[in-house]
Amino acid sequence: RTSMTEEYRVPDGMVGLIIGRGGEQINKIQQDSGCKVQISPDSGGLPERSVSLTGAPESVQKAKMMLDDIVSR
């Protein structure tokens, strides 16, 4: 199975929601999608934060859908 890494961007203000209490939400995204999700520690003052998604292409797609779902709330 091919693994890929894709850079994705999320609004900086949503990072807390994506990570969740004690990392609960980000762990759920990783478990449900099978994709490794790494959020860059700092946006460098930019409105968006970089997130790197690593996994099989379908896992990366699923993680993106889950991120979009959180961001659109």
Rank of each mutant, 00 (worst) to 15 (best):
I29Y: 00
D32V: 11
P11L: 04
V37E: 01
Q61L: 09
Y8D: 03
T5W: 03
S3I: 15
G23I: 04
G44K: 14
D42K: 12
S72Y: 10
P41E: 11
D69I: 05
V10N: 02
Q61T: 12
G55Y: 00
E24I: 05
L67A: 03
S3V: 15
G23F: 05
T54W: 04
G44L: 08
P11T: 07
G45Q: 09
I29W: 00
V15S: 06
I19E: 09
E24C: 10
Q61I: 11
T2L: 10
D68R: 08
S52Y: 15
G45T: 10
Q25C: 09
D69R: 11
I26T: 03
R73M: 13
P11V: 03
T5F: 04
E24W: 15
K36P: 00
T5L: 04
P41A: 13
L53G: 01
E24V: 09
S72E: 13
S40T: 11
K62D: 01
L17Y: 07
D42G: 09
V37H: 00
R9Y: 14
L67Y: 01
L17D: 15
M66T: 01
D42P: 13
P47S: 12
P41T: 11
R21V: 10
S33M: 01
L17T: 14
S33Q: 00
A63Y: 01
I70C: 08
Q25S: 10
G20N: 04
Q30P: 01
P41Q: 11
D12S: 15
M66K: 03
A63E: 02
I29S: 01
E7R: 09
R21G: 11
D12C: 07
R1Y: 06
Q25P: 05
S50Y: 08
M66A: 06
I19W: 08
G22L: 05
G45R: 07
I18V: 07
E58W: 04
L53K: 00
R1S: 10
I19K: 13
G13T: 14
M65I: 12
V60T: 02
G22C: 06
T54C: 06
I18L: 14
R9K: 15
P11N: 04
S52R: 13
M66H: 03
V15G: 05
K36I: 09
E7I: 12
I29T: 01
R21Y: 07
V51I: 15
S59R: 04
L53V: 04
R73Y: 04
V10D: 03
E48N: 07
K64H: 03
E58K: 11
L53E: 00
V51T: 01
I39A: 03
L46P: 07
G13F: 06
D12A: 14
D69L: 08
K36A: 10
R73T: 15
S33P: 00
E48S: 12
C35E: 02
C35L: 01
L53T: 02
E7H: 14
A63H: 02
I26D: 02
Q31W: 04
T54D: 03
P11M: 04
G34F: 00
G45W: 04
P41Y: 09
P47C: 12
Q38Y: 14
P57Y: 03
P41K: 15
L67K: 02
D69C: 08
E6R: 10
E48W: 12
R9S: 12
I70M: 09
G45I: 09
K64M: 03
I19A: 09
I18N: 04
T5Q: 08
V15K: 05
I18K: 04
Q30I: 06
K64I: 05
G55C: 01
Q31K: 08
G22W: 05
R9L: 15
Q38R: 12
G22A: 08
A56H: 14
C35H: 00
P11R: 05
G20E: 09
S52V: 14
S50G: 10
S40Q: 13
V60C: 04
I18P: 04
S50Q: 08
D69K: 11
V60M: 05
I18A: 05
D68P: 00
Q61Y: 14
L17R: 12
I26C: 02
K28Q: 10
T2M: 15
I70L: 14
I26P: 02
G44A: 11
G16C: 04
R9N: 15
A56Y: 10
S40L: 13
S50M: 08
P57G: 03
G55R: 00
L53M: 05
T54V: 11
L67W: 00
I39F: 07
G13C: 08
Y8F: 09
E58Q: 08
T54P: 00
T5E: 05
A63L: 00
E24Y: 14
K36Q: 12
G44Y: 10
G23V: 05
S43N: 11
S3G: 13
S3Q: 15
C35Q: 01
Q61G: 11
G20M: 01
K64Y: 00
M65S: 14
G16I: 00
S52H: 14
E48K: 07
G45P: 10
D68K: 09
R21T: 13
S43V: 09
P11D: 08
I70P: 02
I18D: 04
D32Y: 07
I19S: 08
M4R: 10
S52G: 05
P11G: 03
E24D: 09
Y8G: 02
P47E: 11
I18F: 08
D69T: 09
K64D: 02
M14F: 04
E7V: 06
D12W: 03
K62I: 08
D32R: 10
T2R: 07
L67G: 02
Q61C: 07
V37N: 00
S43E: 10
K64L: 01
G20F: 00
K62L: 07
S72A: 14
G45V: 09
K28G: 03
V71H: 03
I70R: 02
G13N: 15
C35Y: 01
V10E: 03
K62A: 07
I29G: 00
T54S: 11
D69Q: 09
E6S: 12
P57M: 06
P41S: 12
V60S: 01
M4P: 04
P41C: 12
E7L: 14
V60E: 01
M66F: 04
S72F: 07
P57C: 03
E6K: 12
R9M: 15
K62F: 02
G45H: 13
G23C: 06
T5D: 04
V60P: 01
Q30S: 10
L46Y: 07
G20A: 04
R49L: 07
V37K: 00
V15L: 15
G45L: 06
S3C: 15
D12R: 15
K28C: 02
Q25F: 07
Q25W: 07
T2C: 06
V37A: 04
G22F: 07
K36N: 15
L17Q: 12
I26M: 11
K64V: 03
I19L: 13
I26S: 01
S33V: 01
S40K: 13
M65Q: 15
K28P: 01
L17E: 15
L67V: 04
S59G: 07
K64G: 01
V51D: 01
R73E: 13
E24H: 12
Q31E: 10
G23W: 04
R9A: 07
G16Y: 11
K64Q: 03
E58V: 06
V71M: 11
T54N: 04
K36W: 05
R9F: 15
D42C: 10
P11A: 08
I39Q: 02
M14W: 04
G13Y: 13
S59P: 01
D69H: 07
R1H: 05
M4L: 13
I26Q: 04
G45S: 09
Q30D: 00
G22V: 04
S50K: 14
P41F: 08
K62C: 05
V71T: 12
S40N: 15
E7M: 12
G23S: 07
D69Y: 05
M66C: 03
R49M: 08
S33Y: 02
M4C: 14
D69M: 08
P47K: 12
G20Q: 04
I26L: 13
G13D: 15
G34Y: 00
